[in-house]
Design a protein around this nucleic acid. Structure first.
Lengths: 202, 202
DNA sequence: GTAATTCGATACGTGAATGTATCGTAATTA
DNA sequence: TAATTACGATACATTCACGTATCGAATTAC
């Protein structure tokens, strides 16, 4: 391993303020406007930065967007407090809804996923930084539920995750905000817990 | 009511071939490329038609796209044959997956929905022509299930529909094709039927 | 046949964004 | 102080799609 001392270059150093302003502006703009109006011009204007300052860092808008996506914090909160298993599961879904189905991250995720395989690089970034860590956390809770007997032992993980996440995403895409409605996380969990069939039919 | 005879105009009539070629090209192009590269130029080229031919019909690309969307067939097949209720439900989901989650209609729907409220006109078209008729058919089956006793009577319709549709959409967006996997429609129905909890915990 | 209208093709001017280059100014090293 | 690099701003040429207009050929009503 070479020493790799971060040799301080000679002239004026690059502005860290500009760095983060560019990242923030890029993420917000993309979340709000999507691919269409995502232009270097617009990012520069929003960041309060000259276009040259962006082109000094990135060769083109693809690199700009990719770098901004890397700034998506993959932070995953700790699993909530102990208590009733189904309450924990509900809390977890609430957290997923808040942390990745609301606001900025949500729109970025949905926009990128809806483009299918057109931007594989951006897609894998979103999957790795937003989706995967949250699915891993959810998976852990499901595994625990199986080992503790609250969940059937023959559940398929991928399918079960889809059953929990899918309805929230779908309602989100339809523009329904089921906060006070019947499609709250608790009602999703409740329906999945006991199933759609009446007890007498089991 | 006036006679409203479709008075044949004088000159050369508009080409019906061009009409449908434009619609088809517009839908395919939008499904493949999305809003970004959806241009009148590209549609004309793909349809093998002069740009003037398009502009003679539509004032701008928004009208062009909107008209093409109107050609989305809202055809909803008849409810499948009688039999076990849960088989019918499974068949219905299969049909929904085929008829609106595959290929062209799927991509159009997901693209439009993912744009949120940016294109309210296109959005409501997709909702009315693709989503609503299929949800209505699904709702009818659910209502029948309640009245026949296969489903719990306290189910919320919107939430239940989201539980059935959401997982399929989510898996679709993730690019997972669960045809032979655990997330098939039959496994979704099965899991929803009896729930995630083991019978001993009810 | 004559007038009217559409056809594909293409020319035109406009506007937006691209990526490069250059300006004077600011910040940093040597 | 001198050299060097980044800064915001802006000019530049290029590309692309826009929407309009015009062309000769084709098709129809009268």
């Amino acid at each position: 391993m070479a020493t790799q001392v971060p040799v301080r270059a000679k002239g004026r150093p690059r502005s860290a303020v500009a760095d983060s302003a560019i990242d923030t502006a890029a993420l917000e703009l993309f979340a709000e406007e999507g691919f269409q109006r995502f232009s270097v011009e617009a990012v520069a204007a929003r960041a309060g930065v000259g276009r040259a300052t962006i082109y000094r860092r990135f060769a083109n808008r693809e690199e700009l967007l990719a770098h901004a996506m890397q700034q998506l914090d993959a932070d995953v909160r700790v699993i909530p407090e102990p208590g009733d298993y189904w309450q924990i599961l509900t809390k977890l879904l609430d957290d997923i809804r808040e942390s990745s189905l609301d606001s900025l991250k949500s729109r970025i995720m949905i926009r990128v996923l809806s483009e299918g395989a057109r931007y594989p690089q951006l897609r894998s970034m979103v999957v790795e930084r937003v989706i995967r860590p949250r699915q891993a956390r959810l998976r852990a809770v499901l595994v625990r539920g199986i080992s503790q007997g609250q969940l059937r032992s023959d559940l398929d993980m991928e399918a079960t995750i889809a059953l929990l996440i899918g309805p929230m995403v779908w309602l989100k895409m339809l523009g329904l905000t089921p906060e006070a409605g019947a499609a709250s996380t608790s009602s999703i969990v409740a329906a999945l817990r006991t199933g759609l069939a009446p007890a007498s039919h089991l």
